[in-house]
Structures are given as structure tokens and as C-alpha cells.
Amino acid sequence: MNADLGQANAIVMRRLLLLAAAMFGFGFALVPLYSIFCDITGLNRDEAQVLARNTQVDRSRSVQVQMLSNSENGDRWRLLAPTGAIAPHPGELVEIEYELDNLSDRPLVGRAVPSYAPARAAAYFKKIECFCFREQRLAPHEKLRMPVLFVLDNRLPADIGVVTLSYTFYAKGES
């Protein structure tokens, strides 16, 4: 193999290695890209929304909101959803309250993760205040009432008559 060819080969190899390294990075870059995609579509959103200023209440219709909690995670804590369903008008400011009970003798630290159904409703679910924005800390046997303040955007598609809001609580240090 002559020297010229060896050099040419080395150049191609270097470029291909760069490509491989870039694709490895791209794999990790897909993680934030995925979150951006989820933000655009409103899925998995867990930050406070800026409320549109000229929010008008659309009194011509009301949307049923089901509030759920998942508490399969044992008896160390219990997350209770407000009972009954509510049916606010789009544009109306709604306050609801979840309750988190620490049932154990140890302090409880953790965070709730929200989820919505149908998924496309998530983009219209504007939360101004939510316990899911931050970590919750509970003393042993403490009960905490936690408010959620939200507005359903009045651009919510007309064919969505029911929206489900669900929280799952995860304690820190347990998977």
C-alpha cells in the first residue's frame, strides 16, 4: 500500500469516526429534542403556563374534568384526588386540591408526575399553580393539601368533551 493511499484512507477514517461520534451525541441529543417535542404538543408539561391576557370564558360549553391519582406505590403514602368530577367552562379559572398523606414513620420526599388523556388535550391544559412543579417534603404522618390552579384554553377542540388529569407520585430514592 503506498503512502498516498494510506493518507487518503486515514482521512476517510477520520471523517467516518467523526460521523460515528456525532451520531452518538445525536442519540443523547434526542433526549432534549424529545422533551421539546413533548412541550410543543403539551405532553408531559410540568411548568407553570403564562396565562393568555385576554382569556375569555366560553360560557357556551363546559368540559368535564376527571381527576385521578395513581397510588399503586404501596402504603408509605397515599395520593388522593378530589372526589367527583367538575365541569368548568373553557377559559374559567379552576382550583382543585389533591391530598398527599405520608403514612410512614419516616419523612417523605418526592414529586408528582402529571399525565393527561386524551393526550392532545394536554396542550390546552394551562396550569398556573401545581404541586407537580416542585418537590414535596412531608414529615412522618403529615397530611398535605396541595392546590392545582388551571385554566382550560378556550381553543380546546370542540370534540373534546372529557379531559382526564392524572398524577402519579414518586418518592425520591425509590424506583
Binding site: 408526575v113 399525565s115 393527561y116 388523556a117 393526550a119 402519579t168
Partner: peptide
């Protein structure tokens, strides 16, 4: 009907 059930999320 076939829908995946995913821990931490709800699907309808």
C-alpha cells in the same frame, strides 16, 4: 382495542 399501559402515564 389494543392500547399499551405505561407506568406513570395515562393513555385513552
Amino acid at each position: 382495542v389494543k392500547q399499551d399501559a405505561i407506568p406513570g402515564f395515562i393513555r385513552d
